[in-house]
């Protein structure tokens, strides 16, 4: 849930949105626990639980110190860090659920995700500015960008290897992607217009979160298919012998085609 560290108290609309998203988050959490889906999606449940707890802590903090107090802002950003980390774990969990059955491509994907994470982390460091507020903002944006990138890579893998994904998992991932993509843009505008964009940043962020919660609720109401823990795999030597041979054949194909075009060029 979006931290409302800069939320002006007078904005009732924001409060209503915040309240609605809180209750929706609670309902979704209850739905997951009631349906015993916490066994399949433990990190997703943890993420929703942290969101729930964050809302309670923030409500108490804002009541005690006010929206613009130093303490309130610190508590807001600290809890937001925990929530963001839990969201990262939930995204990793979705990647695992989709690909882990295919041990070979899962290992390959995992390496690719790690490489992407490193690149995004470097990018975050490169675009960070001096103050701690911007550092946290950049960290937040970096994490969101990382999650969006990983989800896109996951679906590229899914498409390439034609892996079937349960509709509910697909929609959960879509929710994560849309939310993260929007947060990256939202954070980028906020970085530029820190003072004037603050209230709108909160409203748009809360609306995005609300839309994501609705998408997740709809996804999790669908009947989930049972998953198989492990697929019987081929012996290692099948891949080791066939894959290079296939690539050599493909090279030959391309060379022959290349030779043809060269010959055509000479003729003309």
């Amino acid at each position: 849930m979006l931290v409302c560290a800069r939320m002006p108290e007078a904005l009732t609309f924001e409060k209503v949105l915040w309240g609605v998203s809180f209750f929706l988050n609670t309902g979704l959490l209850a739905l997951l626990v009631y349906g015993k889906k916490h066994r399949v999606l433990p990190f997703f449940v943890l993420y929703l639980l942290l969101n729930f707890l964050q809302a309670i802590v923030l409500f108490g903090a804002y009541q005690a110190w006010g929206f613009f107090s130093r303490e309130g802002i610190r508590i807001a950003w600290t809890t937001q860090g925990l929530v963001s980390l839990a969201r990262t774990a939930a995204v990793a969990e979705i990647c695992y659920l989709v690909l882990a059955k295919f041990r070979g491509i899962w290992r390959l994907a995992w390496r690719l995700f790690t490489a992407a994470a490193t690149l995004v982390a470097l990018n975050t460091m490169a675009t960070s500015r001096g103050s701690w507020q911007f550092a946290i903002l950049n960290l937040d944006r970096g994490l969101e960008l990382l999650m969006a990138t990983v989800i896109v890579l996951l679906f590229l893998f899914v498409r390439y290897y034609e892996v079937a994904v349960q509709p509910s998992i697909r929609m959960l991932a879509t929710g994560f992607f849309l939310y993260s993509a929007f947060r990256v843009l939202d954070d980028s505008i906020l970085e530029r217009l820190w003072h004037t964009y603050g209230p709108l940043w909160n409203v748009l962020g809360t609306l995005t979160f609300l839309a994501t919660l609705l998408l997740w609720s709809w996804a999790l109401r669908q009947k989930q298919e049972q998953t198989t823990p492990e697929l019987p795999l081929l012996p290692k030597d099948h891949y080791r012998s066939l894959s290079p041979a296939i690539n050599v054949r493909l090279k030959n194909l391309n060379e022959r085609l290349g030779n043809f075009w060269d010959a055509q060029g000479e003729k003309t």
Binding site: G104, K236, H238, S243
Partner: peptide, 20 residues
Amino acid sequence: ARVIAALSPEVVAGQEVERA
């Protein structure tokens, strides 16, 4: 070729990239 890759316990990144 993809089925072989997907059902193999070990996939070599270089091979996959090269094939792509």
